Computed example of a mutant assay.
Amino acid sequence: MFGDRTGFIVWYSDWKAARGLDKYGTLHYLSRKMHYAVLYVNSDVAEETLKNLQRLPYVKRIEHSYRNEIKTEYERNVPDKTRFYGL
């Protein structure tokens, strides 16, 4: 359904202006209290979008999200101890 996506954490200074970030990608979350937004964009236009976001006057800084790099397949190396505690 979706191609490769890249996530950005965008720190902003104006909440009302930050609602317009959805023009640049999929706006997943917008925090009013901590002043950050989670934005997902297609990987093929990520660098171009990053340059456009940095030009905005209300954007303080942009961080790359490491969600795609986190391992999500887990192994069970610990033996099951439930049989020792059974009745």
Rank of each mutant, 00 (worst) to 15 (best):
G3A: 13
G3T: 06
D4V: 10
D4Q: 05
D4T: 11
D4C: 12
F8V: 08
F8W: 13
I9W: 12
W11P: 01
W11K: 08
W11D: 15
D14Y: 05
D14P: 01
D14M: 08
W15C: 03
K16H: 10
A17R: 12
A17C: 09
G20M: 00
G20R: 00
L21E: 06
L21A: 09
D22N: 09
D22T: 07
K23P: 00
Y24N: 07
Y24Q: 05
G25W: 02
T26K: 05
T26V: 09
H28Y: 06
H28F: 06
Y29H: 14
L30I: 01
L30G: 06
L30H: 00
S31A: 12
S31E: 05
K33L: 11
H35A: 06
H35P: 00
Y36A: 03
A37Q: 01
A37L: 01
V38N: 05
V38C: 03
L39I: 03
L39P: 02
V41C: 08
N42G: 03
D44F: 10
D44T: 03
V45P: 07
V45N: 11
A46F: 06
A46C: 02
E47Y: 05
E48Q: 13
E48M: 08
T49H: 07
T49R: 05
L50G: 09
L50A: 04
L50C: 09
N52D: 11
N52K: 15
N52I: 09
L53R: 10
Q54L: 12
R55I: 08
L56V: 08
V59T: 04
K60H: 14
R61I: 13
R61A: 12
I62T: 06
I62P: 03
S65P: 02
Y66F: 15
R67Y: 08
R67V: 15
R67S: 14
N68M: 06
N68C: 02
E69P: 05
E69R: 13
E69Q: 14
I70M: 15
I70S: 12
I70N: 12
I70W: 15
Y74R: 04
Y74N: 07
Y74H: 13
V78K: 12
P79M: 01
D80W: 04
D80Q: 02
D80N: 11
K81A: 06
F84M: 01
Y85C: 04
Y85F: 13
Y85E: 06
Y85P: 00
Y85M: 02
G86R: 03
L87K: 00
L87Q: 00
